[in-house]
Design a protein around this nucleic acid. Structure first.
Lengths: 173, 173
DNA sequence: GTGATTCGGTTGTCGCGTCAACCAATGCGG
DNA sequence: CCGCATTGGTTGACGCGACAACCGAATCAC
């Protein structure tokens, strides 16, 4: 009976409620747009993006799972579906025959290249354009502070969610 | 072919990646703690909390669904499970015989009363205690600006996630 | 009143994620 | 070498949420 619970102050409660609402709504909004326009979940989009930006467009299943905050079984299921759709290919790793490498195919690159503009547009419309430059900086700091608690190993730090505007990644065989 | 896509700047991309990571990890962290300590999902916790704070500890299914950002089928499934566990009760609304009212039981009140301290502790440990008072205020404003886009009707504005420290809600029959 | 429409809710089906079980390959101790 | 634990990954069963179909009750047109 720890009666010494530090309940939330009014300000804490208000901010918390909003953060929870945000965390509740954002994934659904991202999934809905990507599903509608590209037939992809946000998770699939991030996974394909990660592969697209990896050296040789190839990554070990375990590393991909870690970078996308997925369990290995989950990634395995998703990879099977993506492979059935011809968006990725899997093959045993030559140096460690336990491991599996995943590579994004040309069709996969094409799909995310087509999907990226709409996705970026959604990100702007639902979040970024609602914030001032100062708030953008504040958000970066705040999310960083929280992630230090939730993701101490910074496994998700390297996820990428957009194409840069540099030399296009698609068709760069 | 909209080649006029406004790609993300470095600052935007960095903040966005962190926000996505946060939205990805937070629900899992909340679910894990509540599941472990009370056998509840975060959604079930919020639903029970909403009932506990409603007048007569009773609410219409439709209103509860709206406040918790749930579809009606989802809420119906969850309500059936909670009822089977004896945490809520459902009965037809006397004034509109189409409608169903849900009431939290004594057992339900007891459960969330027991679960609340641990949950608040988790909220502090994973988020609130990582932020300065200024950042808390900034978070409130930022999340408010984004929610204006994601939840224009402010349906989630009234969700409550904690017990106040006022007269305890449990056992107040 | 009576028929058509809408509202409030429940039920069934399907897809995805989790968990546990399993298998092959590797590494390690002796 | 030979056990044995560990690593990397897949598979199957189960639970939850989304979607569609459905039903009774209320409402509206006239």
């Amino acid at each position: 009976m720890s009666a010494d619970t530090r309940w939330l102050s009014t300000e804490e409660s208000a901010a918390w409620v909003r953060l929870v609402a945000l965390a509740e709504l954002l994934p659904g909004a991202l999934d809905a747009q990507l599903q509608r326009d590209a037939g992809l979940t946000h998770f699939e989009y991030v996974a394909l993006m990660s592969l697209a930006e990896a050296p040789e467009r190839t990554m070990r299943m375990t590393e991909l799972a870690s970078r996308t905050n997925a369990t290995l079984p989950r990634l395995s299921h998703v990879a099977r579906r993506l492979e059935e759709r011809g968006l990725i290919r899997r093959f045993p790793c030559p140096t460690d025959r336990r491991a599996t490498n995943a590579t994004i195919t040309e069709a996969g690159l094409q799909l995310i290249a087509d999907a990226a503009p709409g996705h970026v547009e959604t990100v702007r419309a639902s979040v970024l354009d609602a914030l001032t430059p100062e708030q953008l900086e504040q958000l970066y700091a705040i999310a960083g502070a929280v992630l230090a608690r939730l993701d101490p190993d910074e496994r998700l730090a390297a996820t990428s969610c957009q194409f840069s505007e540099g030399p296009t990644l698609a068709r760069a065989g």
